[in-house]
Design a protein around this nucleic acid. Structure first.
Length: 245
DNA sequence: GCCCAGGAGCATA
DNA sequence: TATGCTCATGGG
């Protein structure tokens, strides 16, 4: 079974996820109380919303979204969800706002570097603006592949796959290949996105939901330890040896 | 008390 | 190339 069929099963099981959440929009319009917006895939409507996504991408590094949300709400309440402001802000002061996401000293530095890059390159112009390249983002200290791809996909509408720990774990189990490479996963996702496009789903929407659904499944069922295989929507087609559980 | 979460960079072999 | 360590908070 290919990734497209897997995606279809996850979508049937969990529904549209509505990523990337924007706390600044929580509870308004198409956005639910936590800022998710299932079925709405338009690009962020302002530079500040693009910046909020970039902020979240760094803050969520090895950290649950629950903790990230606490930081974003604090920053938002203080009017700090703004690239120009964060780029000029004292790192120690910023660290106080993002303490609850962990690694706050490192993340404070990462955010200053990323903010300066986005501001100096005039890359916070909203949906009609220019987009930084993947190589430019990866060249920044503190931005790895997952962060770069999340920013490109969710803040800039670039149809690039996002491979994270959930994707690696789920797909490695699915094909019973513990050493499944990120590149193999990316290719599989891109191929599935093309199939989705033929079925009428824009690649950006597909890759958006695919990443979000994998995270959802990884948290709800295909957990790192003690996966709940009996209740898994992929049970009949997954190669993972349930006897090991 | 333990492990984990929507990682990334660096040292070591 | 490939592990292993560090960074650090909040929830289960």
């Amino acid at each position: 079974m290919d990734y497209y069929s897997l995606y279809t099963l996850l979508l049937e099981a969990y529904g549209l996820q509505g990523w990337w959440p924007l706390t600044g929009r929580a509870g308004s319009g198409a956005y639910n109380e936590k800022g998710y917006h299932p079925g709405v895939y338009h690009l962020p409507e302002s530079g500040n919303e693009q910046f909020e996504i970039a902020l979240g991408a760094v803050l969520t590094q090895n950290c649950s979204w629950h903790n990230v949300r606490i930081c974003l709400e604090r920053l938002s309440a203080a009017g700090l969800v703004n690239g120009e402001i964060i780029a000029q802000m004292d790192e120690t002061e910023l660290a106080d706002y993002i303490r609850s996401s962990g690694y706050y000293k490192q993340k404070s530095r990462k955010l200053r570097i990323l903010s300066r890059f986005l501001v100096e390159g005039s890359w916070l112009q909203g949906c009609a603006g220019n987009k930084p390249s993947r190589a430019e983002l990866l060249n920044l200290w503190g931005i790895g592949e997952e962060s770069a791809d999340s920013i490109l996909l969710y803040a800039y509408g670039v149809p690039c796959p996002v491979v994270d720990a959930s994707a690696r774990r789920i797909l490695a189990r699915f094909v019973d290949e513990p050493s499944l490479s990120d590149e193999t996963i990316r290719r599989g996702m891109e191929f599935a996105a093309l199939k989705g496009e033929a079925e009428g789903t824009p690649p950006v929407s597909f890759l958006n939901e695919f990443h979000a659904l994998l995270v959802k499944h990884g948290k709800a069922v295909c957990t790192k330890r003690n996966p709940r295989c009996p209740e898994c929507c992929l049970l009949s087609c997954c190669a993972y040896d349930k006897q090991k559980v």
